[in-house]
Amino acid sequence: MEKILITLNINDKPCEVMVYPNDTLLEVLRDELDLTGSKESCGEGVCGSCTIHMDDKPVRSCLTLAMEATGTKIKTVEGLAKGDELSSLQQSFVDHGAVQCGFCTPGMLMSADALLKINSKPDEKTVRKAIAGNICRCTGYTKIVKAVAHAGNSQDHCPDCITFSKAKE
């Protein structure tokens, strides 16, 4: 098997990379492009830690071949923030205590971000469904669900949204 040169569009930047035809997108992101934000936890598409966006849709990068990603717009967790300014979803994760060990966080963010793109004010049930393919062992999901539901829509009765809003003023 020989390596092939492909061009991927990642986080709005074109990048050329040599890949084997059977390399997964996750392997290429992590090992070739040093984008280690996307995590491998199960390697078979069950846990969601490797979730990225392909043309704005959440995709398991461990089940996607790098070759399949040519001609699409790839976004990884590294592309969510603008420089050092967190996106409102990332900030909401921080403020609501949705991050503990952090290993599931990148994939969780990407699944949630994809949901918010099509539904900016999801209810709890919708959020739970959207992230049902992302396993978290630390948080019991409660704070993650809250963080997604409250992202960009601060809720008056939420102590963490209040803290957040005050800090922003």
Partner: peptide, 21 residues
Amino acid sequence: KRIPKLDAAQKAMGRAEYIQD
């Protein structure tokens, strides 16, 4: 006080370095 985890932003940006990384 409900102070967010000090390394949460780093983890949310995908910048935290685990043994895998």
